[in-house]
Design a binder for these strands. Structure first.
Lengths: 214, 214
DNA sequence: ATTAGTTCTAGTCAATCTGACTATAACTAC
DNA sequence: GTAGTTATAGTCAGATTGACTAGAACTAAT
């Protein structure tokens, strides 16, 4: 389950997109589904998630976290399947390089049709978690490049939370977080006062998967 | 992974306890470990967790939530094991009924020796999650009975967070949450002014496991 | 060169929330 | 009665938040 920001076709503002793969066999042949695959005997869970991500879309995530283990009895009509789902954030530069093809395509996270298996429910839950983490933790920066303006951070929040935020108040809050570092660079090229560039110096969260990285 | 409140031997104040089972075969024979067991083909993940809980300790949880899927390559020295761990809260009345025996015993959560497998790390993570959920969500009430005083709620927080809280300020905050309902009952029997009893009217969280219960 | 249009950025102010603290109420034990 | 204990309400200063104002710094059009 991969999230990335891409400009909306209409407004040009960044919105949330996810890549899906088309089922080429039964069950649910022809429907779109989350990328995934089997867990090999010799790889850890996050390794397997990264490999699957790379194999199907060519993407390398800037953030990877376990979402949930889904094990309902009737998730697949043919057999009992337990899926340990991970979710990833990729930066826009990465997302632009992603392989697209007849059977791999990006979709807006808020405009999905009917997907294979219980994947609609999985995405709903992932979106809920993303919004939650965004409200507390410092996760939004993994959807941006190394340098960014405060307005870009605000656009990320607006895209994910789906509501507008007061620019001045948002600045004040972000600037108060110690993990945000001011640089001496400014972003030129806009038709207005050039905004200052910042960078994120924090570390990802502390899951069991990556607890030992202090 | 089960949490319950039991009075400390020394101070008599409630503290966090968890039941462990003794390994009766290799690997780690003789060491204490978290209760658990295999996932059968015909039961969902939360069902399997409840059943294991009941089989080993006789307990029925008042709260059950998925903790994490642990899948490191070397968790067990003999084979590759993926454990989908659930954590549960049980009320004190339940906990008092729990089966204890030579091979099942309660331990204080903050005073554990070396356990089998990676179970020390799992418990650390569960404690971290419990503290986190406590700070935000309304989870503490599942460690109490149906009726409780505000001082009892405070004791739960103090036990889990391991620090003292100002009684007056704590009251103010708890009373402000809409899920707490005042009753007309008072708890008699103390050697001081009898405190009013309250009840919790909220629902558990919204995991994928129990999302459809509005 | 001037002006209009845009966003960036700093700041004010009232409302709300938080933590430290004081004071009274209501019970039991002596 | 009186001392001891916890329950409960309330006050007050400091921090945080949301709505808003205003000047700064750039581009584009005149």
């Amino acid at each position: 389950m991969i999230f990335a920001l891409r400009p909306s076709e209409r407004s040009g503002r960044p919105t949330l997109w996810i890549p899906l793969v088309r089922r080429i066999r039964e069950p649910f042949k022809g429907l779109w589904a989350l990328p995934g695959g089997p867990l090999s005997h010799s790889e850890s869970l996050p390794d397997a998630a990264s490999r699957n991500l790379r194999d199907t879309t060519g993407l390398a995530p800037s953030y990877l976290e376990q979402l949930y283990a889904f094990g309902g009895l009737h998730r697949s009509p043919t057999q009992r399947v337990v899926s340990i789902v991970y979710w990833a954030l990729v930066q826009p530069t990465e997302a632009a390089l992603a392989d697209e093809s007849e059977n791999v395509r990006w979709f807006r996270a808020d405009r999905l049709g009917e997907l294979a298996f219980d994947h609609n429910a999985i995405i709903d839950y992932a979106l809920w978690r993303l919004r939650n983490k965004m409200a507390y933790g410092s996760i939004a920066y993994h959807l941006l490049g190394e340098y960014f303006t405060l307005a870009q951070v605000r656009e990320v929040y607006e895209a994910v939370l789906d509501r507008e935020l007061d620019p001045a108040n948002f600045r004040r809050q972000v600037k108060a977080t110690p993990e945000i570092e001011e640089t001496d660079q400014y972003l030129q090229g806009g038709k207005h006062r050039p905004p200052r560039l910042y960078r994120f110096t924090g570390r990802p969260g502390l899951d069991p998967d990556n607890r030992s990285t202090p």
